[in-house]
Write a protein that binds this DNA or RNA. Structure first.
Lengths: 262, 262
DNA sequence: GCAAAAGTGTTGTCCTTACACCCATGC
DNA sequence: GCATGGGTGTAAGGACAACACTTTTGC
């Protein structure tokens, strides 16, 4: 069968059961009538969500941490977590936790992945699903300081409670990848920002230094920044121009992506 | 504070507690001594894993499905799932399920994400974690045909049981992205393969047509294919050269990745 | 006037794309 | 000899990397 002459869509319009199946009669003898009973027979496990909330301040990437209130961890740091309520959407639970801890709910929040190592919680098996967020520290003064809630530099993380070091690192890698493919960064700058601030942010998150001219050219060629004809104020050097990100245009054009590269 | 003159690493060597913390005494009054009791107080939920196993045959991408044995779904299709045993690693559970259903365990398997919509299972709330795999259909004859296990064309999926349509689609998107950044595709070709086979695979998975010369140049420039000086046999046209993928070299060189693009 | 950062252009290299012809094999 | 896919090269355009000097402001 030839392919080259077919449009790509053609592949996706064909019926393709393998022959093997047609030689077997369907097995309909043991259908389960009571789904609820089936589910009751499953083992169950406590489920939590951990929110890894990154912020940016003084040109450093930070992450919001508390001291674990488990005595066994002896004051080690932990990310913000809580259990998921019965019949609560996972995403909703994540936003609830974020709101409970920071008062914010106008922040994107993405699921990263589940962590379920049986020994990860000293009190028994607990599955956790990590969510990741990025927000502007100066937009969210911490009103609660229970458990020593604070922004901690990502670069100086030592031991943490549970497997939270691993979770933070997984989220950090996820973030590094994500910020290169999506305009996350603008969520953690002020509404108006200078190109220098934008570059500092990328450099801090990616852990690299970038050529200033090339960086500016890159964003200029994307044509997604709006020059608002304002300048920085109160800086101890020549003030830079301020921009806004053109979210509308970004949403319209999105990403036409094909590019094998590994 | 200036950044431009510092190496990237410098950012990651600094201590950065915010001032806010130092103005608050630690709250040590309510430490929890009994972690097990704490965990016992959490709600629990059944946890399953669903394996979305993609295969490639006759230039079409397929996915391994069974008929749901829940009467309520009336024979609708479902991916391979099972609950996670007590104290079983999530990854282990995924490999166990894959092995139970296909007999295989030399296949990569990656977690995609968790699905936890409260209404997704008719028997009550069940959280599932989707794992995704890609394998060579011809390496794995299906020995079990319980529940009408079969390879189903990805392009003709209709309604499915549970939220499995959503899960398959999420995994398909994940796969499309993943195969462009990682050499997954070689797992589902024979050990020796022609460039045409490789291209067919990419075209089928990505749903595009690619220019043959450019495709070949791309892989030639990567220099990750080993020309084994053999030719295709028994093809009804001019035979092509056969290659192997140089996994060793790939592993050594990996990916030095920075490239903002959205 | 000095320190600090803003702003700006060019060149070379590489990657990507588009495109057309002859070749080897089976039938 | 014909049908099918294998194999190849080139030119143009775009993206990226490297690189240095002048300008503006606060102090």
């Amino acid at each position: 069968m030839k392919n080259r002459d077919h449009s790509a869509l053609y592949f996706f319009e064909q019926t393709t059961m393998t022959k093997k199946n047609t030689t077997h009669a369907p097995h309909e003898e043991h259908l389960i009538k009571d789904a609820a009973e089936l589910v009751k027979s499953y083992p169950t496990v406590p489920l939590t969500i951990d929110c890894v909330i990154f912020g940016f301040e003084e040109n450093k990437l930070k992450v919001l941490l508390i001291k674990s209130d488990l005595e066994i961890f002896n004051g080690k740091l932990s990310v913000l977590g809580d259990f998921v309520n019965d019949n609560e959407e996972l995403d909703d639970a994540a936003y609830r936790i974020l709101k409970e801890r920071t008062g914010m709910n106008d922040v994107f929040l993405d699921q990263v992945r589940a962590f379920g190592h049986p020994g990860r919680h000293p009190g028994g098996r607990v599955i956790t699903i990590a969510y990741c967020s990025l927000l502007n520290i100066n937009h969210h003064e911490l009103k609660i300081h229970a458990n020593d809630l604070h922004w901690h530099s990502v670069s100086t993380l030592k031991e943490m409670a549970f497997d939270h070091k691993e979770i933070v690192e997984a989220c950090y890698k996820w973030l590094q990848k994500r910020i290169q493919e999506h305009p996350l960064g603008f969520n953690l700058l002020a509404d108006k920002f200078s190109l220098r601030e934008l570059q500092n942010l990328y450099e801090a998150i990616l852990g690299v230094t970038l050529d200033r001219r090339n960086f500016r050219k890159k964003f200029a060629s994307m044509d997604l920044l709006i020059d608002i004809n304002e300048m920085e104020q109160d800086v101890p050097h020549r003030p830079g121009k301020l921009y806004k990100f053109n979210f509308e245009k970004y949403e319209k054009n999105k990403r036409k992506w094909v590019g094998i590269d590994f």
